[in-house]
Simulated assay, not measured.
Amino acid sequence: MTGTDPARVPRRTLRTGATMPAIGLGTFGSDRYGPDEVAGAVSGALRAGYRLVDCAAVYGNEAQVGESLAGAFADGLDRDDVFVMTKVWNDAHEPADAVASVRRSLRDLRLDRLDAVFVHWPFPNHHPPKADTDARDPHARPYDHRAYLALWRALEGLVDEGVVGHLGTSNSTIPKLRLLLADARVPPSLHEMELHPSFQQEELFAFCREHGIQPVGYSPLGSPSRPERDRTPEDVVDTELPVVREIAAAHGIHPVLVCLKWAVQRGQVPIPFAVKQSQYEANLAAVVEDPLTPDEMEALRSAERGNRLIKGQVFLWPGAGSWHDLWDLDGTTRLLEGVPQC
């Protein structure tokens, strides 16, 4: 392949009127690949036509990704044509720490502004790398809207300063988003969440669309290459689902590409991670050619299995029995010192 013309890639319009590409390159992968290999994929992907790069402080590779971005801009790529996103990790929820985290990402990514900054998780709950999935963080706490709003206010200041274009939430729930939409001066423009055919999150997806929040989907392929330690027996591999394989056979393509076509045609922004040139080039090309039919899109609704994959060590604190305790709060509101906790 020789790459895809970026002008052919669909775009999403955010609440500010700015636009972003409908597919990007994820950079979460340094647990399996070295930071330099991930950075090499960023360089190659930009040459191939990608104009959206999803980063995060916790990925441990922003300095290397920054070198790739700087090289691409030095070679003539216009900074205004690339949408760069990062995230504030769980250990930086104090307002001053959040601001410092964003400024560190700016420095490491060699940028003078970020197009979007997300709060990676709605509650502070930090664990060392490769912690057991039942680990408890003695410093963690459940969601507290007052604390979250203080963090959000600090990020709003960076928007006022002009170094951040948009704010985003991530891994949140409808009750939390309702509170934030009611109280934020700068409302969230994006919400990053797990989205793939076997975990479509229709209610949350629809809520975001209704309230002007662009859904961004991580693990868009159902995370088939996840480490074995992160798997549970009931997990489903999306690319092995019969409906996905049948549609792939009808189009003569790999099942991975069916998942990406579905994501873009549905209206979300998938951010697949790949370091092999053939893979990230094929991923981008898939969303601009040979679309799925309306019948195929409807058939993929049957792939829903409630198959949440990201449910491990980041959710737990003392007193939380299991990750289920956290996600079971989706439809409830608890009161703690008179403040909704959800």
Rank of each mutant, 00 (worst) to 15 (best):
T2H: 14
D5T: 09
P6H: 15
R8H: 12
R32A: 12
Y33G: 06
P35V: 10
V38C: 06
G40T: 05
G44S: 09
R47M: 08
G49P: 13
C55N: 06
C55E: 12
C55V: 02
A56P: 02
V65W: 12
A72I: 11
G76S: 07
T86Q: 00
A98H: 02
S101V: 12
S105R: 03
L106Y: 12
L109V: 06
R110D: 04
L111F: 02
R113Q: 14
A116M: 10
V117F: 00
H120T: 05
A131W: 11
A131K: 13
R136T: 11
D137V: 02
D137I: 11
P138D: 10
P142A: 07
Y143I: 13
A150M: 07
A150Y: 03
E156H: 05
G157F: 03
L167S: 00
S170N: 05
S172C: 10
T173Q: 14
I174T: 00
R178L: 15
L179E: 08
L181P: 01
A182H: 11
D183G: 06
V186K: 04
E192C: 02
L195D: 00
H196C: 07
Q200L: 04
L204D: 00
A206P: 15
P220N: 09
P220V: 06
G222Q: 02
R231Y: 01
V237C: 09
E240C: 05
E240K: 01
P242A: 13
E246T: 06
E246W: 01
I247G: 09
Q265N: 12
F273R: 12
A274D: 01
V275Y: 08
Q277Y: 09
A286R: 10
V288F: 04
T293S: 12
D295A: 13
D295H: 11
E296A: 06
E298C: 05
L300W: 06
N307P: 02
Q313Y: 12
Q313W: 04
V314M: 07
W317Q: 03
S322H: 14
W323E: 08
W323S: 10
L326K: 12
P340I: 05
C342K: 04
